[in-house]
């Protein structure tokens, strides 16, 4: 199994506080990797480091053997796309949302993207503000897919959703991983992690303390 990302002694500090403390490991390509741990463990920071929304204080991160700071940052972010915890709508309509990064998206392409996130029945002119939280989160995923990323970074993708919406989003994540995408997600919901992740990394106070399949990791039990 090839590596999508590798970390080499990554340290991240903000305002004098060490958030990640000498992280060295890797993330496999083509699977779903969940980063779990207690609040303040550095999970979201690690995710943001992967598409350079943050920069390590020390150490470096590689993407397919190339240091990410040597890759054009805009190219990197198109390959490694991040979807935040709460879905942020950037346009008034569904089609507008899918044209944020690529104004050339055709209605056919839009329907194709929506089908990948189980929103195939949606009207393209529907107002985004009328969508439920789960629908907005899936539309945010579809928006990220418009740039054809290799990796999706998902920060607590189901934390603000009700159970049925969260289940629908989990299914979309599994389907996207099955189509070849690498998915890295941060979650605090251990039951959902067991259902959706292939690998788990456990952080504690900025240090990697466990790694393995969901069945192997003691933190989950």
């Amino acid at each position: 199994m090839s590596e999508a990302f590798s970390f080499d002694a990554v340290v991240f500090e903000r305002d004098g506080r060490r958030i990640l403390d000498g992280l060295s490991d890797h993330i496999h390509a083509g699977v779903v990797t969940a980063i779990i741990g207690d609040s303040g463990a550095g999970k979201s920071t690690l995710l943001r480091l992967l598409n350079r929304l943050e920069e390590p204080t020390q150490g470096f991160i590689s993407f397919h053997d190339d240091r990410i700071d040597s890759i054009d940052v805009h190219q990197l972010r198109r390959k490694v796309s991040l979807v935040g915890q709460r879905p942020v709508m950037l346009a008034q309509t569904v089609l507008g949302e899918l044209r944020i990064a690529d104004p050339e998206v055709t209605p056919d392409r839009a329907h194709e993207l929506l089908a990948r996130v189980a929103l195939g029945e949606f009207e393209l002119e529907r107002k985004t503000l009328t969508l439920s939280g789960g629908e907005q989160q899936r539309l945010a995923l579809a928006r990220a897919l418009t740039v054809e990323p290799e990796v999706l970074l998902l920060d607590e993708p189901t934390s603000s959703l009700d159970d049925s919406s969260a289940t629908a989003v989990d299914q979309v994540i599994r389907d996207l991983a099955a189509s070849g995408l690498t998915v890295v997600l941060v979650s605090h919901d251990l039951d959902r992690v067991q259902g959706v992740a292939d690998f788990v990394l456990v952080l504690d106070h900025g240090r990697l303390v466990e790694r393995g399949s969901p069945g192997q990791v003691r933190y989950l039990s």
Binding site: H74, V83, G84, R86, L90, A101, R143, A144, T146
Partner: peptide, 13 residues
Amino acid sequence: RAAIEARLSLGMS
């Protein structure tokens, strides 16, 4: 901030 970073995450300048 969240909306701006959502745009940056799509590869925008």
